[in-house]
Design a binder for these strands. Sequence first.
DNA 1: GTCTATATCGGGATAGAC
DNA 2: GTCTATCCCGATATAGAC
Lengths: 220, 220
Amino acid sequence: MSRSKSAETRERILTAAIELFQTRGFAETTMREIAAAAGVALGGAYYYFASKEAMVMAFYERSAEVVHERVAGVLAGPARLEERVRAVLDARFEYFAPHRRFLGALFRHAADPRDPLSPFSEETRAIREESVAEFAVALEGTRLPRDLAPHLPWLLWLYQMGLILFWIYDRSPRQQRTRRLVDLSLPLFVQLIDLARLPLVRTLRRKLVALLEESWSETA
Amino acid sequence: MSRSKSAETRERILTAAIELFQTRGFAETTMREIAAAAGVALGGAYYYFASKEAMVMAFYERSAEVVHERVAGVLAGPARLEERVRAVLDARFEYFAPHRRFLGALFRHAADPRDPLSPFSEETRAIREESVAEFAVALEGTRLPRDLAPHLPWLLWLYQMGLILFWIYDRSPRQQRTRRLVDLSLPLFVQLIDLARLPLVRTLRRKLVALLEESWSETA
DNA sequence: GTCTATATCGGGATAGAC
DNA sequence: GTCTATCCCGATATAGAC
């Protein structure tokens, strides 16, 4: 329980940084401010974090850990697919909620293929794959078309990314619009998965699978 | 035809900037380099462009104009929906092609709701609406479900944004993967529009329309 | 190993002289 | 409209206290 003094300092700096990013914005917060708020010299901040952006990465990594633990707990008991996926989404959004503005800073890098902070980058691969794996667990116990099945965890992850992007934009009180979007889109998504099993749409499904497999090899 | 000296200077600076962004990258190019390449002092560059990013915006605006003219020409004659949409996409990608690396800089801001450079922002509204209108024209002459029809231009625009994002990431030779993605996804998209008219999927379609209408009011 | 203090540099942005 | 001088900040480096 008693962490080393070093870990405590690092923690103090990271907490101060996230706090400042949240209240003043990422670009507006200076390293000097962060250091001052954490009670260390400028060099101290750089001793623990190679750059301002490294702090974003550190937050991203930690959140992945915390959320993953919660998700694992929730998915232990059986439930319908919709509820299982919702549990994953809820856990993530609940943890993200106080840091919504700050997360905008993270998504600023989403589009740069070479940026380590991009959710699609090599550096964030471990986090991404863990998240995809969560959806694979959520899908357990559901009857799925054989050809589509291997792609669904990744599709759900992409769906989650879309929701997070929408949520970052969502300026409605307490992001109610995002909540509503999940309420409407998730049942639709689940219904589509169910519909995809019908022989009627077999050709269409085949095409979708072909598309997914072509556009694959880890996007980046 | 004869532009003012001021407009020429501005043009010279913008051309130099795009050239440098393309060859050396956005972050790596300094304002001092741009100014030097354009033959003006640092302050001169800032006289015409409020920031380095404003240059990206200027490029974005100009490309919208040029592409829009081309699109208007192509859509004058009738053709099947798939070909009409493809014409719009081709025109855009053709103009973007030499600036692929540089456009990454634009998409870096896609996720920040308050960033003027975001494709969803108030500042880019005019460009966005013009682009949505192009797809509305492309849809003319196609039988569509009444309830879904008003949303399709915007959905196609969103589809286009997704493709552009994929294309920016696409490191395959000459972005062949994106080409392949369009080849596979566009017929699928058109087929889904066609399928949406069946009475069988009426309830599902209604739900989708409800979702679109809820998540509306211009996202931002 | 964990920091403080300080100096230095490069680059975005601005003010004001001309 | 254009240039020069200047400011601020992120980042790096270094010397040294403990």
